[in-house]
């Protein structure tokens, strides 16, 4: 594995930092947001960009250092994007069936059916 060009190294490092930052924000959101429905947004969302940055960093690093185009990362992104909305939807649905408490600021309400 050869060493990277300094510029590439910088870009990879910045992307990793950005990824870490967005994942951290997702975790902070989990603690700070007022109710279950709002907390659902933290991990499914800020992480989309967090994982995205890490995946791009990994692609850049392995493509540049081994000279082979790294494609597995595209699959990771695709599977993540296919599964994240489904799990968020299930969690939200389950919460509505169980009548999980909502914060008082919430306008509108889930319907009964």
């Amino acid at each position: 594995m050869g060493s990277l060009h300094p510029v590439a190294e910088w870009i990879v490092s910045l992307l990793l930092l950005a990824g870490g930052f967005f994942t951290l924000v997702g975790a902070i959101g989990l603690v700070r947001l007022p109710d279950f429905y709002a907390r659902l947004h933290g991990p499914t969302k800020a992480t989309t960009l967090g994982v995205g940055s890490v995946v791009i960093a990994s692609m850049l690093y392995f493509t540049l250092s081994t000279g082979e185009i790294a494609i597995t990362e595209i699959l990771i992104t695709a599977f993540l994007f296919l599964t994240a909305p489904v799990s968020a939807n299930f969690l939200a649905k389950a919460a509505m069936h169980l009548n999980v408490e909502r914060s008082e600021e919430t306008r509108g309400q889930p319907w009964e059916q």
């Binding site: 969302k45 939807n89 939200a92 509505m96």
Partner: peptide
């Protein structure tokens, strides 16, 4: 897309 979750 962050900020919205479709629930049902």
């Amino acid at each position: 897309t962050p900020g919205t979750v479709s629930s049902d």
